[in-house]
Structure formats: C-alpha cells, structure tokens
Design a protein around this nucleic acid. Structure first.
Length: 131
DNA sequence: CGGGTTTGACCAGCGC
DNA sequence: GCGCTGGTCAAACCCG
C-alpha cells in the first residue's frame, strides 16, 4: 500500500474534543480524544510513528476502522482512525492515552496542535460531536 | 534481512 | 444464556 503522509497542508482541524464526559468511570479513566479532520488521507502524520495492529469493519460505518499503536515500547498510546460513513472526506481520529516520549520530528505537529485544541475545547466545555 | 503491514480468527464485554 | 460488535493478537507476506 502507499503510505500517505500528510503534514498538515490544508487539512483543517475543525472541532472537536471528546473527553471525560460523565458517562462512566471507565470512560473517565481512559483518555479518549476524538478529532474530526477533513483530510484526503486517513493517517495524519502527527510526528509520531504508528504501527497498525488491526482493521475492523464497523456496522455503522461503510469504511473500515484502522487501529494504530505507538511505535515506542514504553508508549502505550493507541490511536484509531475511521472515516465518516456519510462523508468519506471526514476522518475521525481518536487518540487514547498520552505520549511519554518527545516527538520524533522537530516540527510542531498535529499532536501539539490537536493537544492545544483539546485543552481549548476542554476549557470551553465543548460538547461531544461523535457518539 | 528486518520491519511493517495485511487479513483472519479468537476473545471479551454488553445487550437482549 | 446466547448473540453480536468491537478490539486485540498472531502468522504470513511485501517492501525497503
């Protein structure tokens, strides 16, 4: 397959942070941040290296969901990417966990930006867009 | 040759 | 209690 790496060209990171809602303690324990990005590619290069460990077709989505994990041994960060069933141009990236290692690249990447957006949304109490 | 990716199967959790 | 969905792991294959 072709590795499509996008370095935040025109990908507009519009909305949205899904965080510790008052769903349940289990959800709260796991850091889950969902971002909806409008990008032509599935995998956004956030500066970290990810290793794909699974793919699954979800009933609600026409497109398969991809499961990624941080390439680092100590870093047990998981990331799942799924496309919108209605708009294939919308890519939903869900981060789970926190990186304990610095970015491999020397650029302020998506992770930083998304992180800021995340915090910003958290502070603003942004309502969950997905689920 | 090594690492990474791919696909399928298995397992667990939740719902009914 | 059984069924279904989602998630993870494992083995094999492909590419660099």
């Amino acid at each position: 397959m072709e590795k499509q790496q996008v370095m935040l060209p025109t990908a507009s990171t519009s909305s949205t942070a899904l965080s510790s809602q008052n769903q349940s303690d289990k959800e709260a324990k796991h850091h889950r941040y969902a971002f909806q990005t409008r990008s032509p590619v599935d995998v956004l290069d956030d500066g970290y290296q990810w290793r794909k460990y699974g793919k699954k077709i979800v009933k609600n989505n026409t497109f398969p969901r991809s499961y990624y994990r941080c390439a680092h041994r100590e870093c047990n960060v998981k990331k799942q990417i799924q496309r919108h069933s209605d708009d294939e141009q919308i890519v939903v990236t869900t981060y789970e966990g926190t990186h304990t290692h610095p970015v491999d690249k020397s650029v302020e990447t998506f992770d930083q930006i998304l992180g800021n957006l995340l915090i910003d949304n958290l502070l603003n109490n942004a309502p969950p867009t997905i689920e």
